[in-house]
Write a protein that binds this DNA or RNA. Sequence first.
DNA 1: TTTTGTTATTTAATCGATTAAACATACCTT
DNA 2: AAGGTATGTTTAATCGATTAAATAACAAAA
Lengths: 342, 342
Amino acid sequence: MKRKVSMKDIAQKLGVSTALVSYVLNNQLEDRINKETAEKIRQLAEALNYQPNHIAKSLKNNKTNTIGLIVADISNPFSANIARIIEDEAKKSKYTVIFGSADESYKKSQDLINVLLSRQVDGFIIAPAENSEKQLLLLKKQGVPFVLIDRYFPELDVDRVILNNYKAAYDAVTHLISNGYRRIGMINFNTGLFHLQERVRGYKEALAQFKAEDLDENFRTVDEKAIKTEVKLRIDELLNKSEAIDALFFGSNNLAIEGLAYLQSLKIKVPDELAIVCFDEDNAYNLFHCPLSYVKQPLYEIGRTSVEMLLKAIAEGSKNTNVVLDAALMIHESSMAVPEIS
Amino acid sequence: MKRKVSMKDIAQKLGVSTALVSYVLNNQLEDRINKETAEKIRQLAEALNYQPNHIAKSLKNNKTNTIGLIVADISNPFSANIARIIEDEAKKSKYTVIFGSADESYKKSQDLINVLLSRQVDGFIIAPAENSEKQLLLLKKQGVPFVLIDRYFPELDVDRVILNNYKAAYDAVTHLISNGYRRIGMINFNTGLFHLQERVRGYKEALAQFKAEDLDENFRTVDEKAIKTEVKLRIDELLNKSEAIDALFFGSNNLAIEGLAYLQSLKIKVPDELAIVCFDEDNAYNLFHCPLSYVKQPLYEIGRTSVEMLLKAIAEGSKNTNVVLDAALMIHESSMAVPEIS
DNA sequence: TTTTGTTATTTAATCGATTAAACATACCTT
DNA sequence: AAGGTATGTTTAATCGATTAAATAACAAAA
């Protein structure tokens, strides 16, 4: 790669100091600098297509204007959508985003954090992996600004933008109940991730309204690593019980996609044979034979708010702000069958 | 953010020079350095959790070990999947990825290139926007290493990893023909992007096998900015003709998703009423009422090869290598109806 | 004893930009 | 004429690491 044009090049060609070039190109000391000299510098910079070396700037300023974004998997639509929003928001403030996928592994997450730290990112936006409390605590102790999104640890007092997962699930299941469904199943990941537990809590709390005991009867979990096979098994279980479920609530978009694909292959009619509510939005939902009800996360708000909070934390230090956003329940046909009178 | 530990800190605490610290921590001059001194330095570095300042390193070495990835839109599954593969491949060689979405705008694309260049990325992987030939040519003239993926400009002699789009489309349509379909429609973007034109060429060439004239009869385009509304209009046109189409080929995943959602809402039975072949893979396809045939791009190969080529171009200069990969036609029910005998 | 070699470490320049402080010149004032 | 002020520009240190070249101390060879 050809050496790029530096301030020194400009300075030498014009017989001035690099300091002067710097002042001019940064519009500093404007009232002191000779207008013609300034103009000459500007013109030559333009002519040579001078691009400031951001690396040198960063070294001097101890500021890279870079955000490290750590998600579970950038190829997951949820992560990718958030990434896009964060990218755009960051750009508005002249920040650039470096991303990494942690794959639900706290080891990978730690590696990523280290790599990005050594690249002097000014702060992080993190959808943390399970068991990563310790590394986050360490990050906090080091005074590194960061904001958690999506996932979090309730006992960890840090900046975060999260969903009221409990309420979202509670509302979804209550909606099913009020539409007459009584044997409502839920499929969730078998995980310690708190935000997913909150969804379970919301599900059970809603169930408890009309069902005094055995709230676990129709609740199933699948292992994140064997999602394809286990979702099928769990659905089979729930459908082949003596009292088969009449509605099913999916705890995440991944689960919904796999589950719906299986229901499709079973030719199960939604909502007549089974009502459905999904968590998260997904383009894919539009291809299903029945318009799907789903819990819609305010992605834009999450992205916008997290960037805003991070930039504030970078500038003024963290205030450990806890922003809780509400989901919207998007109701469509999949949860609205007129209950049969039997 | 607390100031991070530097080599200077280590050097001062041990009363040695930073040079020595540098040599030790980089395992250089190993046979010259006193083993005990080396050990002391290593231990202190460990104890203080020293992380090298990659920015300083980059400035000195004129090498950032960073790849700039420019895609159309990181929130598009195709881009997101590629991004993930590139991330993993880059990591293997200790490279980090900065990404940006160009949104099919050559202006945004140019801005991104400038921002990433000023951040001294070592090279780019670019899925170029329409009309961006000039900026790519400039990049080439500046000696900036880059590899094009997905899209390309045939007259531009640069490194690239592309699909044989012509063959992919030709095979897809030939498959439909050999299954008895004769009135085969195609919906594509109204665009100058060469790779999409190649798909059209493949479609028409295949049609030409049994149809001498008016290859445009069942070909329609939609504007990228009005995809939702226009896809519906075009499908209506193709279905409401005096001789309605009996098969439909979508030119991209976006088009397929929108189109299939509309077909779903029209309750059109696939493949009985209409056969379908899509371009690109998408999770969403599994939710459709009929397992879909689609053209599968070798994403992993594209990602792996592009990173490999870029790193080689960074190290040794570009060889203007042109890698053309073949797609796989994944045949499922949507294109396999037994043709009615009439 | 002088030279040569070996081992261990430091010095100092460099990467490209930033910026406080110094310097230089011209012009006013009293 | 001495001092002050405004204008215009340069000097030099700095950010954190790298690395060629220099240095120092000592042992071995001539």
